[in-house]
Amino acid sequence: MDTFFLILATGLSVGALYYLLASGLSLIFGLMDVLSFAHGALLTFSAYSAIMTMNWFGAASTGALLAAIVVSTLVGGAVAFLVEWLFLRPMYARGHLSQLLVTMGIGLVLIAAVTIGFGPDPRSMPLPDNVSGSIDVFGVLIPVSALVTVAAALLLHAGLMAFLRRTRHGLIVRAGVENADMVRGLGIDVAKSFAMVFTIGGLAAGLAGALALVYVRAGTPHLGDTYLIYAFIVIVIGGIGSLPGTLIAAALVGLSQQFANHYLTGGAGDLLVLALLALMLLARPQGLFGKTGRIV
């Protein structure tokens, strides 16, 4: 029974990390029609800033960890803001392929920067004891890291939903996901929303970077790669541009992966996720909550 709950917790925790990356990607693709391949590297780059922050503090205290999470989030946001401003904005008129190549190129540069700065080997993330352990929840031992990542994902989701539903900028984003041209036709500068959404995606990727370290406890220059692939799968399953769909799909993918890996055989989880993806593309290409019928 304990194992079951442990796997449930890890599944949700992995799903939470997918959500942190996928929510931004989904909004970015929904609004801007840009598939950002830079987001995995953004996660990695930010994660290393979290490691640097921990090292700077010296002691693995809770305060240091909080600081590292904040730094990582801000680094993700700042890099994303610059990437949008300097590289993506001039490319919007150029079509998908150019944008895809630009984001891939930026991803490679970020990974190269990390590799040059820190080497290719894993760098461990010092964690305070209260976070690296487990706590007793109704008689079941649950890793604190799982609670932290799931809580972060739920908070981010609530924040994004409030932003989308209650603010004018959010209204513009929702309208832009449907029809950006018509938003322009009402006198609104959608480019500003593009910058904002890309930056929000970067903040979320930065948060994911620090929390991925809380979960896996070490960073490598390719930390973000697998998360990126699964985040793409999650947004296709969830329905592009739909955050509730993304949240549910992220949990679904994380849980399927962990349960299949444990109860079937190692590696079965990835196959199961790919089967889910294929099934979804065949039966419901618009995803769980998507309306547009658009596929990546």
């Binding site: 929702r174 309208a175 449907e178 029809n179 018509m182 036709g185 309306k291």
Partner: peptide
């Protein structure tokens, strides 16, 4: 031409 209302809003 096609009204282009934001259908989901």
């Amino acid at each position: 031409e096609n009204r282009d209302v934001f259908a989901g809003l």
